[in-house]
Simulated assay, not measured.
Amino acid sequence: MVEHLNIPTPAGIFDAIAAGPETGRPVLLLHGFPQSSSTWDHQVDVLGAQGYRAVAPDQRGYSPGVRPDGAANYGMGELVGDVLAMADELGWPVFDLVGHDWGAAVGWWTAADHPDRLRSLTAVSTPHPAALSAAIRTDEDQHARSAYMSEWRNSNTEQRMLDNEGEALRRIFDWKVLPSKVDEYVRRLSEPGAMTAALNWYRAGRAGGRIDKVSVPTMYVWSTEDAAFGSAAAFDTENWVTGPYHFQMVEDVSHWIPDEASELMTSLLLAHLSVR
Results as ranks from 00 to 15, higher is better:
residue 129 P to D: 07
residue 229 F to H: 14
residue 156 N to Y: 14
residue 161 M to W: 00
residue 145 R to V: 07
residue 185 Y to H: 08
residue 139 D to W: 08
residue 134 A to V: 03
residue 208 G to A: 15
residue 167 E to D: 10
residue 165 E to A: 15
residue 175 W to V: 09
residue 169 L to G: 08
residue 185 Y to F: 15
residue 190 S to R: 12
residue 169 L to H: 01
residue 163 D to K: 00
residue 124 V to K: 00
residue 145 R to S: 04
residue 187 R to D: 13
residue 217 P to H: 13
residue 210 R to H: 14
residue 164 N to I: 04
residue 235 F to G: 01
residue 179 P to Y: 09
residue 209 G to Y: 05
residue 184 E to C: 00
residue 108 W to P: 03
residue 241 V to T: 11
residue 216 V to F: 02
residue 179 P to K: 12
residue 170 R to H: 11
residue 162 L to T: 05
residue 132 L to D: 05
residue 148 Y to N: 07
residue 113 D to P: 00
residue 217 P to G: 10
residue 155 S to G: 00
residue 192 P to M: 01
residue 209 G to C: 06
residue 196 T to G: 10
residue 170 R to Y: 11
residue 153 R to H: 01
residue 217 P to I: 13
residue 150 S to M: 01
residue 124 V to E: 00
residue 167 E to C: 03
residue 154 N to K: 15
residue 239 N to V: 00
residue 230 G to N: 02
residue 121 L to N: 09
residue 142 Q to S: 12
residue 113 D to V: 04
residue 164 N to E: 15
residue 201 W to Q: 01
residue 201 W to D: 01
residue 155 S to T: 14
residue 156 N to W: 14
residue 133 S to Q: 11
residue 153 R to G: 05
residue 120 S to Y: 04
residue 188 R to H: 10
residue 171 R to S: 14
residue 219 M to K: 13
residue 197 A to Q: 10
residue 162 L to M: 13
residue 109 W to P: 00
residue 225 E to W: 08
residue 178 L to F: 06
residue 209 G to F: 08
residue 164 N to Y: 09
residue 143 H to L: 14
residue 205 G to Y: 04
residue 209 G to K: 07
residue 169 L to A: 05
residue 188 R to E: 08
residue 192 P to T: 01
residue 140 E to K: 07
residue 214 V to N: 02
residue 199 L to D: 12
residue 176 K to A: 15
residue 123 A to Q: 05
residue 119 R to M: 01
residue 221 V to H: 03
residue 192 P to D: 03
residue 179 P to L: 08
residue 147 A to L: 10
residue 193 G to P: 10
